[in-house]
Amino acid sequence: GIMATRSIPNWRDRLVTIMIAPLMTCSARLPVYALLIAAFIPQQTVGGIFNLQGLVLFGLYLGGIVSAMAVAAVAKLARRNAGATPLLMELPTYRWPRLRGLAIGLWERALIFLRRVGGIILAVTILLWFLSSFPGAPEGATGPAIEYSFAGRIGALLAVVFAPIGFSWQICIALVPGMAAREVAVGALGTVYALSATGDDAAAQLGPLIAGSWSLATALSLLVWFIFAPQCISTIAAVRRETNGWRYPLIMTGYLFGLAYAASFVTYRIALALGGG
């Protein structure tokens, strides 16, 4: 989506589009949404038609869309004197695509993406793996190995910062390797809770565990966090390549984390006030 903004001729409009693109709900969020919704939202019908869990998922999608529109509106107000830029596109002659040409085009675009972004993603992924794996658990340790790693220590420090929005130290630890991609957070939580299963089995075992140890307010806060938080290294790397520097990726990361924290804080406090603690 970020690379597709190249079709926007005006740099300011293109930059705003890049900045709000991470707010659009992607498939990487779905494992986290599915885990939390299944664990905390009851399976019941609303109004005799709608499923409550489905409504919550729809609300998460809608929250991302509305937030993107709001951020774009604020950016537009900040540059009121820029003037409107008409969109003019010359449409090509449409023909049925040839499979060979389509395959070559896809292959070339994939190679371009890997050359431009793959190196950054690989480097950061290796770093996150190192933080999550070293140092190993000492002899006689009773907790999961990740608790004794650098990521575990970082998570323990982050727990102080994230306590106002209801995040436990387990959640904070999972957020560190989860920076590689949002869906990694589910596996990281499974590691923190010392589950031997992986994939769907880990999610199935995690549901009852977190339902018994987290409050509804914490779950809602984490759901809202994942609407905004830019926990996707590939997205940040793509923004860096498209803007030719680290200025705008850092600005984007900062404002999205700020939005995530503020929205989670409000959600957590409202849920506590309504008895969700």
Rank of each mutant, 00 (worst) to 15 (best):
R100L: 09
E147P: 00
L209R: 13
I41A: 02
A75Q: 14
L206V: 06
I236Q: 10
I270N: 02
I126F: 15
G152L: 08
A123G: 09
V16I: 15
E108G: 03
I165P: 07
L111G: 11
L36S: 00
V224L: 07
F228P: 06
L60S: 01
E242W: 09
A217H: 05
C172Y: 07
G63H: 09
G105F: 00
I171M: 12
A188G: 07
I120M: 14
M3P: 02
I112N: 10
R153W: 15
I210K: 08
T218M: 07
F265E: 04
M69H: 14
L122K: 04
A72W: 12
G105I: 02
I173R: 00
K76V: 00
G199P: 05
M179T: 10
R182V: 05
A180W: 10
R240E: 05
I120R: 10
A217M: 09
R182E: 05
S7G: 10
G54W: 14
T267Y: 07
R79V: 03
I112Q: 13
G136I: 04
L189P: 06
R115W: 11
P31T: 05
A21R: 05
L195G: 10
W107G: 08
L127T: 08
L223I: 09
V161Y: 04
I104S: 03
A219S: 10
L175T: 12
S221M: 02
P97T: 00
Y261H: 11
A203H: 02
G105V: 01
I210N: 04
V117E: 01
G190N: 01
D200F: 14
A237V: 06
I49R: 14
G275C: 08
A72Y: 13
I41D: 01
I104D: 09
L189S: 05
I236A: 12
L36H: 00
T17R: 07
M179W: 14
Q170P: 08
A28L: 11
A203F: 10
P144F: 06
D201Q: 14
A217L: 11
L131H: 05
I18E: 04
A204R: 15
W96L: 02
T85A: 09
G166V: 13
V32W: 06
Y148W: 11
L175N: 01
R247C: 00
Y268R: 10
L250V: 15
C26G: 15
L57Q: 09
I20W: 02
V74D: 03
